[in-house]
Design a binder for these strands. Structure first.
Lengths: 107, 107
DNA sequence: TTGACATGCAACCCGCAGGTTGCATATTGA
DNA sequence: TCAATATGCAACCTGCGGGTTGCATGTCAA
């Protein structure tokens, strides 16, 4: 799985805002999403294309309308394969620190 | 807290590789880190500056050597304030789905 | 003291991301 | 059938990210 496109997709605050909008209300249309961003419709389209590429957003056509749905699975992947690793390291460090302190306490 | 610089810092694969290197062995010097990347020392310096800016890496000088230490706290922040939110949504969706299926099962 | 070593600083180059504008296409509803 | 609506496509502009090179600075060791 290519984490890079997901990280790149998340790097832009407008795209994170789009994900947030879909989090608040899923299945929004392009026009609806545009109302919340201060840029042209085409710019929003490009951002959504990046999110689709990263598999963070899925699209369903209803007539002439394009409905956008949030897919949080890649976020889960990033956590499991990336953030979680460092997190476990941190917890281990905290545990080590705690143990050290207790040892110091005893001496 | 400014999540944006952290996301931006994570968006580059070379920088993620640097974090990985520090994860494997903390407190590495600039020269040591350079040995693992296929680019000039100055390029690595710039990447490390971005990571410092995002507070993902802390630096300690020892004589003429610059030691780099990993700080996973911003990663934890990103998870808690960002990924976790969507994750809870997903779990909730799964739970709803499960309940629906069980209801269908009963009918 | 001096040369080698580790790093910093600054200028520069270039591709591409993020934005725009203009026009085309397809669906809807009166 | 036709005008309004929702979106796509393509060309273009511009700033900046990621890289380079050249030289300066500070520290160590003989």
């Amino acid at each position: 799985m290519d984490m890079d496109i997901v990280f790149k997709a998340l790097a832009d605050s407008s795209r994170r805002q789009l994900l947030d909008l879909l989090y608040q209300e899923n299945g929004r249309t392009l026009g609806e999403l545009c109302e919340h961003l201060d840029m042209s419709r085409q710019a929003v389209t490009k951002h959504l294309a990046v999110l689709e590429e990263a598999n963070l957003v899925a699209v369903v056509w209803r007539g002439r309308e394009k409905l956008h749905y949030l897919n949080p699975v890649p976020l889960q992947d990033i956590y499991e394969r990336w953030i979680g690793k460092f997190e476990r390291q941190r917890l281990h460090a905290l545990h080590t620190l705690k143990t050290r302190l207790e040892e110091d306490d005893e001496s």
